[in-house]
Amino acid sequence: MSFDATTLHRIASLARLDVPADQLASLGAEMSALLVLVDQLQGVDTKGVAPLAHPLSAVSEMALRLRPDEACAEINREANMQNAPMTENGLFLVPKVLD
């Protein structure tokens, strides 16, 4: 299928990417070409094949490792927030959030 303007808008909104009007057409065309590529998957017979999410589970059963419940993080707020564009009293600032 092709990536029409409506689809591009919907996906761009989901991905929170502003797409300027003058880029809509070219980006849409590139996306359509990409979809042609990935559409090659549609013909593959995968009946009965389980999806493989973690590569090594192809050969052995992999399970999540669990961490003991210990609160021991060293938190240096100043260092952690040094890259923030806007802060006040230890808070990250954003334009007013409406709920």
Partner: peptide, 17 residues
């Protein structure tokens, strides 16, 4: 949490994680 009050900067919300 988003905090909407008690901030000096106008027109913003504060984010406490």
């Amino acid at each position: 949490k988003s905090l909407h009050e008690g901030l000096e900067t106008p027109g913003v919300s504060g984010i406490d994680l």
